[in-house]
Amino acid sequence: MMATIDSALLFALTGCVLIGLGLYGFIVHAHLLRRILAFNVIGSGIFLLFGALGYLGAGQGTDPVPQALIITGIVVALSLTAFAIALVIKLAEEEKTAVLDAAKTAEDLHE
């Protein structure tokens, strides 16, 4: 049972919704781990949109060039996630918080 171009369109649209969902999560959550989660949802939404648009039809699969770029993207997203998590852990250990307090930061800058 092969996917069709219609299925690919469905996956591309799902990608669009995922980007919106991730964006929403990224804005409304203050907890940094939740923001990292949201960042990853946005990322995989973009990959799905990109890859599904490169679907050529049953039997031909997805265009290899987008596939290669997406694999590269997945690895780069992991690298960034690992670094972001290391920063969050550092913040948690030194400040006992996982939230960036905008007001507090601005105050510190004024001093």
């Binding site: 092969m2 996917a3 299925s7 690919a8 996956f11 990853n40 995989s44 990959f47 890859g51 599904a52 679907y55 049953a58 039997g59 031909q60 699969g61 997805t62 596939q67 997406i70 694999i71 997945i74 690895v75 997203a77 992991l78």
Partner: peptide, 17 residues
């Protein structure tokens, strides 16, 4: 990704993502 016949990406997503 498997449905889109992009098995290389599916492997990377499952393992890394």
């Amino acid at each position: 990704w498997v449905r889109l016949e992009a098995v290389d990406v599916a492997l990377a997503e499952a393992a890394i993502g």
